[in-house]
Amino acid sequence: MSLRRLRDLPDFEVADGHPDVRGWAVRGASGTVLGTVSELLVDADAEQVRYLDAQFTGAPGPKRVLLPLRLATLDAEARSLFMPSLTEAAVAAYPAYAEELLTPAYAAAMRQALDGTLGEAL
């Protein structure tokens, strides 16, 4: 699976009838806002969004992360994206995303931070 930023695929757009969540708030288990979605990582072959490139803004400090879309639920009215797995501990342990590619090391760290039981969804 090759992941590409949606903005790098000028011939693609979010499908009709589905929200473009860029700019939406990311909320964790407590419902508080943790950050904002800045970009979508897509599987161009499957024509699906796989990950959300998000910017955490709260404690312990600003951090750019990747969030698996399959673990999120969307609230179009509130323009919010809920990640129930993102507890305070998970946010602290969440690996910062600095690469343009999703490396196996980053995927493993992401699984560990969210929850071992959710690993298969990643």
Partner: peptide, 8 residues
Amino acid sequence: AEIPIQRK
């Protein structure tokens, strides 16, 4: 959650 994309 599932967000499909499509060709423009």
